[in-house]
Design a binder for these strands. Structure first.
Length: 486
RNA sequence: GUCCCCAUCGUCUAGUGGCCCAGGACAUCGCCCUUUCACGGCGAAAACACGGGUUCGACUCCCGUUGGGGACGCCA
């Protein structure tokens, strides 16, 4: 019923997938899938100076990582100049465009003059009404020429936008812009119209920084006798200081979030909720739920600030809901990369590593938190937390030493399978004998065994570490306290 | 500067004239749970930018001010 729905993402090759572009892609994707329409990718590389294969690959990789799939082949505008030229020339034949012989230098001079006089620069249409003789003379001189479209000189242009409503603009603020360069390559605004029409794009969903372009583009549709698509200009993503998000705001490319240990599902979910909401209180939503709920009309017209803190929270929600085995499968790489373990170890001792992940699952926000918080499971090389040692080792060093030594001796009597209930019984038994609260024993022990003041339950953590490791680390702490001159 | 857009808690937002002395989420702060850290539970603080209208009644409609953003290329 809606098989005539088609949308596109039109990235210009910038070298990486920006979160703003990613969110535009997501909205297009969600809209297409909701309606069972097509989602096309068209690379806007008409300016070959600024394009390269690597840059395009980076963008495509970002999309693939977020599992955003597109329909059909990827289109490259750089391969379609002939098509654009043909339509540009049609406009010339229909007297809806004309050749302009003004040089960039002349134009720049006028532009600067206008700037100095605090006027908006608009092309003065010097060449719009050149006579055939004038043109012939210029051509005879071999002067370079561009093709400009004839925009209405006065009156009001307008178009309907799903998000912003009816937008109007006085034609006196728009000039006859260039549609084709001297070498026959057409420019963005023109190529965009031609492609959107030829590719059957029904809805143009893009950033609202394109609104000015749209006034130019709708005139082009009309001049070509083509039906306008539906426009939906989505608000921009802002940084913390409320200016358009950029590198100085921290991470802007999806790759950076991947490197920070954020799941693609999280970023997808988070970005889809920036400027849009399903109309109820849901926030953690599966892709299918998002597709089902997505409505263009519910996109807010307001710019939105990107909040990385909420992104991390959302990621922690995904972690907690994830199956343990799957989580280990994802976390293993950061553990390996941090040099804490090896692929072989994880594969051959899956159950043990799985236990590590289970103990940390409730406490991490990103995949990168695993190596940080699991260090002591993998290596003896860790320092004691600064505040922790002051409080649990050196506040009453003699007491700490006494407790640690007595607990060590209790522990050595626990069976070699070192079950957590037995460890706990040993500790609580000792605390009773000493007439002290268990916590007084627990804190120094935790610090001795993990170097940290927080973490998973002490007894389950010790069981996983094993008897030998625990005794060894407690002894090490005892020496550490004895050696430290106070 | 000109033009366009926007304006609810710090942030993301709900709200389309009475249901709102404004609801949810993140963050913050308390309390509970607890060996710690988290999780979880309960609770607190926190917003309709301002000024005029319209209306019996405005967060919701209109105008203006202020603030913010964007666009002003032979870039996309």
């Amino acid at each position: 019923m809606s098989d005539n729905i088609a949308v596109r993402m039109a990235p210009s090759p910038s070298g990486f997938l920006h979160v703003g572009a990613a969110r535009t892609a997501i909205f297009n994707y969600l809209f297409a899938r909701h309606h069972g329409g097509k989602f096309i990718i068209r690379v806007e590389d008409t300016d070959e100076k600024r394009s390269s294969e690597e840059m395009i690959q980076a963008i495509l990789e970002g999309l693939k990582w977020m599992n955003i799939d597109w329909d059909g082949e990827i289109h490259f505008q750089s391969k379609r100049f002939d098509v654009y030229r043909e339509h540009a020339l049609n406009l010339l034949n229909d007297d809806k465009a004309y050749y302009c012989y003004c040089t960039p230098d002349e134009l720049n001079e006028k532009r600067q003059k206008a700037q100095k006089e605090k006027r908006t620069f608009l092309y003065d249409r010097k060449c719009r009404d050149l006579s055939d003789e004038d043109r012939a003379a210029m051509d005879a001189e071999g002067r370079r020429k561009v093709l400009r479209i004839k925009m209405p000189i006065e009156g009001e242009g307008s178009f309907d936008d799903v998000i912003a409503g009816t937008l109007k603009r006085d034609y006196r603020e728009l000039d006859d812009w260039i549609i084709m360069r001297p070498d026959g390559r057409c420019t963005y605004n023109f190529c965009c119209v031609v492609d959107d029409h030829l590719m059957g794009i029904s809805h143009v969903i893009r950033g609202n920084d394109h609104i000015t372009n749209t006034f130019k583009q709708v005139v082009t549709y009309d001049a070509l006798g083509w039906k306008r698509p539906v426009f939906a200009h989505i608000p921009l993503i802002l940084g913390k200081d409320k200016s358009k998000i950029s590198k100085r705001h921290g991470a802007v490319s999806v790759t950076e979030y991947r490197n920070q240990g954020i799941f693609p599902e999280t970023l997808f979910n988070f970005l889809s909720l920036l400027g849009w909401n399903p109309g109820d209180d849901r926030e953690i939503m599966t892709r299918d739920e998002l597709i089902e709920a997505f409505r263009l009309e519910r996109i807010s017209p307001r710019n939105a600030v990107f909040d990385p803190v909420k992104l991390e929270w959302m990621n922690s929600e995904y972690i907690r809901r994830m199956d343990d085995n799957e989580l280990l499968d994802k976390a293993r790489w950061s553990l390996i990369e941090a040099g804490l373990t090896t692929r072989l170890s994880i594969e051959s001792h899956w159950k043990w590593h799985l236990r590590v992940v289970q103990l940390l699952k409730e406490r991490v926000k990103t995949l990168n938190d695993f190596p940080r918080m699991a260090r002591y499971f993998y290596t003896d090389e860790f320092d004691y937390d600064e505040k922790g040692q002051k409080k649990h080792f050196f506040k009453e060093p003699d007491d700490s030493l006494d407790m640690l030594k007595r607990f060590r001796d209790e522990l050595s009597r626990v069976g070699d399978d070192f079950r957590q209930d037995e460890i706990e019984a040993a500790l609580r038994g000792l605390s009773e004998k000493m007439h002290i609260k268990p916590a007084l024993l627990i804190h120094p022990t935790r610090l001795a065994v993990t170097g940290m003041t927080g973490g998973p339950g002490l007894f389950e953590l010790m069981e996983l570490l094993g008897k030998e490791k625990c005794l060894q680390r407690i002894n090490r702490a005892i020496e550490y306290i004895q050696q430290k001159p106070d």
